[in-house]
């Protein structure tokens, strides 16, 4: 599946031999999609770019060209700066954990026993739940005084824990929720990669009396290095766009400690009725995403090197 669907394969369109010359009616194959693509992706992208130079009232439909004012305000806005910082922090909290924990679980569960299969099912199960259900569960876990976490900490005599109300811990608490929700994906990707490693390599290592630690560092990880990079990039792209958990668990608070960039766009555009300003923020998000996607493309084209 990896090879078949890799971006590299997608780029070699020119190599496909011709079946016969094309006719206009055959454009109907691609026309429906291209129409949707232009109307619902390309056009809004351009429109958003234009809106970012306007004062735009989404609800009154009123627009006025104001040049670079939105961008000037945006870059001097402390809340936006905070949102950028928070987003990067969130990526730093989650992505390495996804990679390390995903690999750990995959290593432990890479065997054909009934319990390993059960645990694989369990770790992946939370993945299919929607963000609203996940946050319902975790808000109940973090509830002050009566949450699961507080109940657990009561055993150790630790009182009055309110993570989501504490600016030093709220973002980490949301990160934990996110990892609980999404660990299944890195796990299965690592499992797939581990199963590609030929058994002979391990046998050789065993003959050399390599310690498990050495085997991990010198055999396993180099063999699946490409997957490690891939998981990292997939998670970077996903976590940069974090929104649902934050909107539902803290709405950006306390003391602005959890407001992410998408949350900022949402609030500015829809809560605060400043859609032009929100569009400017969305352009910044877009640029960051382009860089991340470029990175992914670059990595997948150079897969032989990994």
């Amino acid at each position: 599946m990896t090879d078949m669907t890799s971006t590299a394969a997608g780029m070699t369109a020119a190599a496909t031999p011709r079946l016969k010359s094309w006719s206009w009616t055959e454009l109907l194959f691609v026309a429906p999609y291209l129409l949707l693509y232009v109307v619902f992706l390309v056009y809004p992208l351009g429109l958003g770019f234009i809106m970012s130079f306007q004062y735009f009232d989404l609800f009154a439909g009123q627009a006025e060209f104001i040049g670079l004012e939105n961008y000037q305000q945006l870059f001097s806005d402390r809340i936006f700066q905070g949102a950028v910082v928070n987003t990067f922090k969130f990526v730093i909290f989650t992505v390495p954990t996804f990679v390390a924990l995903g690999l750990l679980i995959a290593l432990a569960l890479n065997r054909q026993t009934w319990w390993a299969a059960t645990l694989r099912t369990l770790f992946f199960a939370s993945n299919v739940l929607s963000v609203t259900i996940v946050t319902l569960i975790w808000r109940a876990v973090y509830l002050p005084q009566k949450g699961l976490l507080q109940n657990f900490l009561d055993v150790f005599g630790i009182q009055n824990i309110a993570l989501l109300q504490d600016p030093n811990w709220a973002l980490q608490a949301i990160a934990v929720t996110t990892i609980w929700w999404g660990i299944g994906l890195p796990m299965v990707l690592f499992l797939a990669a581990l199963q590609q490693i030929p058994g002979e390599i391990y046998e050789a290592a065993e003959l050399d009396n390599a310690s498990p630690w050495q085997t991990l560092w010198h055999i396993t990880i180099p063999s699946i290095w490409r997957t490690v990079v891939l998981v990292t990039i997939i998670q970077i792209i996903a976590q940069f766009q974090v929104f649902g958990q934050i909107n539902l668990m803290t709405a950006g608070g306390p003391n602005n400690s959890t407001r992410s960039m998408v949350q900022f766009v949402y609030e500015a555009g829809f809560r605060q009725w400043t859609a032009g300003f929100a569009s400017a923020a969305a352009q910044v998000l877009f640029v960051i995403m382009i860089v991340a996607a470029g990175l992914q493309f670059w990595v997948s084209r150079r897969k032989q090197e990994f």
Binding site: F40, V42, L47, L58, Q241, G269, M289, A293
Partner: peptide, 16 residues
């Protein structure tokens, strides 16, 4: 288009 996140076009989509 794979690089365009829906989150980045949400405001103009709403307007449309």
């Amino acid at each position: 288009g794979l690089a365009i996140p829906q989150h980045a076009v949400i405001v103009p989509l709403h307007k449309m």
